[in-house]
Simulated assay, not measured.
Amino acid sequence: MNSVLTALRVFEAVADSQPVGLSQLARRLDVPKSTVQRCLKTLHEAGWVRPAPGEGRWSITGRAFTIGSAVAAGDRLRDAALPELGALQSAVGETIHLAVPDGDELVLVERLDSPHQLRAFLALGTRLPLHAAATGKAYLATLPDEQINAYLRSTPTKVTAQTHTDPEQLWDEIRLARRRGYATTEQELHEGISAIAVALRDRTGAARACFSISGPSSRLTPELFEEYGSKALQTRDAIERVMQ
């Protein structure tokens, strides 16, 4: 069991710092190099990691995303969401991100790219902090108050200079998201990028996923938030009808 746990820790460390070398992994995990090397060999044979450009460096493969996508595929989520999200992307001309909850984060499982040369971009598999991403705030707004308070007590950290970390300010944003049905961010996850997001709920009322409209702040201005928020809510309603 210990060897399995160590291998999982090695895999997560590679995912967080890729491409990464053996010595760096050993220092970060406080595990002997020989142990890390055995784990990497096993993970490589199983198809989870691969050698990266640069001597002795490693990256994860697409296998993790394949498994993660299966989460979004459950209960017809992808089948229900993608046609409607595609229509939304065509209507607004900005990038659409779809993410699913995983503990105190969201994981990006689908992206529909904007046709603009200047556009928002997040790699599939990116882990999104709940307090900094619009999708994260939309998800927080669906949670019970005590769960939100527990998250805010974990001392959210700044991702950019504009990231909101004050619990009272975040609570104000959560209450606003609950009233109007969508959450917004301006340069809180990435400088120069704004986003509008809503949560998708299943028949029990639990949030199964969240999606966002993301674009350059120079183009996705606050004046568009209400219009795009309304379009996102219409898309949410259409998806949830299929999911029921």
Rank of each mutant, 00 (worst) to 15 (best):
T135W: 00
T184K: 06
E223N: 14
P222S: 13
A134K: 07
V198C: 11
M1E: 13
E226G: 09
G56M: 02
W58H: 06
F11H: 11
L128M: 04
A64I: 12
Q147L: 15
E94V: 12
L118A: 04
G54R: 08
G86N: 10
T165C: 14
S23N: 03
P156I: 13
G21P: 08
R179T: 14
I239C: 01
E240A: 11
G215W: 08
Q147C: 11
A183E: 04
H116N: 11
S194G: 10
A64M: 08
A209W: 01
A207W: 01
I239F: 00
A15I: 06
L5I: 13
L200C: 07
E168S: 10
P83K: 06
D202T: 15
H44Y: 04
V31K: 01
V159A: 03
P216M: 07
L22T: 11
E188F: 04
Q234V: 15
G205R: 06
E84W: 00
E173A: 14
S214M: 03
R175M: 13
L224P: 03
G56L: 03
Q147S: 15
P156E: 14
A46L: 14
R241H: 04
F121L: 06
V159I: 14
L22M: 11
A7C: 08
A64S: 15
T135H: 00
M243L: 15
L224K: 11
A138L: 04
E84S: 12
A209R: 02
T155W: 00
Y151N: 09
R201K: 12
L108Q: 06
Q187S: 15
H97S: 08
L200H: 07
A13T: 12
P101E: 05
R76W: 00
E55G: 14
P32T: 02
T204A: 04
P51L: 12
A72M: 07
L122C: 09
Q234L: 13
S23C: 04
W58L: 15
E227L: 06
F225A: 07
P216A: 07
Q24I: 12
P156C: 13
P83F: 00
V159H: 05
P32R: 02
E105K: 07
P19F: 11
T157D: 03
D102C: 09
G47C: 04
T160L: 06
A87G: 12
V100Y: 00
R219H: 05
S3Q: 07
L8Y: 07
F211D: 13
S212Y: 01
I96Q: 02
H116T: 15
F65S: 04
